[in-house]
């Protein structure tokens, strides 16, 4: 039996006692490329060359190889892990330092390649979801600031217009007080301020207006992107909540590997850990509470609805990740029927 393994220097074969029987060295400039092809499951050129030098028919690789057995760790790998440095010295690396630098440059190349491969567009959507959340925070804080500020001049407006966006729009568009929504300007208890004071407030309002429109634009982007990335899930619960699930999980792959019980309570981590640590009641729903299904279910059935929804979602998410046939519409119909039954009290 002959064992085969490889290292940044080349492909090596050894017998069961770990004695080297054959080797094929990589060309110096091509080491990274050769190493990469040895790491794939197909038999690489260097490995073919090595096999042709081996007389035994029973060849065992250290990594998975098409058409061959593999065993990790195996004697050839052990031989290499003990001796690569001394082999390197004999094959042209003048110093240990030079050799180590060569190894780390190969590792660096390999990791950079893998990093580029690991990118997927779900990560962009997650950033977009986080951007919306942060915009909401900033908009809320600064809108309240603007209310306080503008309140010196026109306090009645803040009381009348509760919605932040409408308030911002008013200040951005009207520099001076104007009769609006049943407020008489002449009755205002606000103090008169200079034009330059008002202009500064208006500038802030205009920035906020731009941020509100940016928020809408990101939401549109998330919606469009989610329909491409997770068409089935989006068909059931809509793009916003689907994107939030994705954002909590961290990636579509991770989300697809969650069991439905985890999906059911995603977003309720605090409650879950409280339950685990101090034995309180376990959460019935996390982010799924915001869906129409759980919202509309009768109070005592909300938990059941969350469980049903999570089970359908976990299937839909897996189909989204592994790119299966569309099932979103079918699952939605089943859930709608279930919700209708619950509402009737059955």
């Amino acid at each position: 039996m002959i064992y085969v393994s490889f290292c940044p220097l080349g492909v090596f074969a050894a017998d069961a006692s770990g004695k080297e029987v054959a080797r094929v060295l990589f060309e110096h400039g091509n080491a990274a490329k050769n190493l990469r092809s040895c790491m794939s499951i197909a038999v690489s050129d260097s490995e073919k060359k090595l096999i042709s030098q081996i007389k035994s028919d029973k060849i065992v690789f250290e990594q998975k190889k098409e058409g061959y057995e593999h065993e990790f760790p195996n004697p050839a790998g052990e031989y290499l892990r003990r001796n690569t440095e001394s082999i390197a010295a004999k094959t042209g690396f003048a110093s240990k330092e030079k050799f180590l630098e060569f190894v780390s440059s190969i590792a660096l190349q390999r990791s950079s390649e893998k990093m580029i491969e690991s990118f997927s567009s779900d990560k962009l959507v997650i950033q977009a979801v986080n951007a919306v959340d942060e915009l909401d925070k900033v908009l809320n804080t600064l809108s309240i600031r603007l209310r306080e500020w503008y309140g010196f001049y026109f306090p009645e407006l803040g009381q009348k217009i509760q919605d932040n966006e409408q308030f911002v729009n008013y200040v951005a568009e009207e520099l001076y007080r104007k009769d609006a929504k049943g407020i008489q300007v002449c009755e205002s208890i606000g103090s008169d301020v200079d034009k330059k004071d008002l202009e500064e407030m208006q500038r802030l309002a205009k920035s906020l207006q731009a941020m509100y429109s940016e928020r809408k634009s990101i939401e549109g982007y998330i919606d469009a992107r989610m329909k491409e990335i997770m068409p089935n899930t989006t068909a059931i619960i809509g793009s916003v909540i689907a994107a939030r699930l994705l954002s909590i999980a961290g990636s579509l792959e991770k989300l697809a590997k969650f069991p439905s019980s985890t999906i059911q309570i995603l977003g309720a981590e605090t409650a879950l850990f409280r339950h685990l640590v101090s034995g309180g009641r376990s959460p019935k729903y996390g982010i799924l509470f915001q869906t129409n299904y759980v919202q509309q279910a009768p109070f005592e059935r909300k938990g059941k609805m969350a469980r049903l929804l999570a089970s359908k979602l976990s299937m839909a998410i897996k189909i989204d990740f592994y790119k299966g046939n569309p099932v979103g519409a079918e699952y939605k119909k089943a859930l709608d029927a279930e919700l209708a039954k619950m509402k009737k009290g059955r």
Partner: peptide, 9 residues
């Protein structure tokens, strides 16, 4: 096993 080829003892 995935990164064994890059590493010595």
């Amino acid at each position: 096993e995935n990164y064994a080829a890059l590493i010595e003892k």
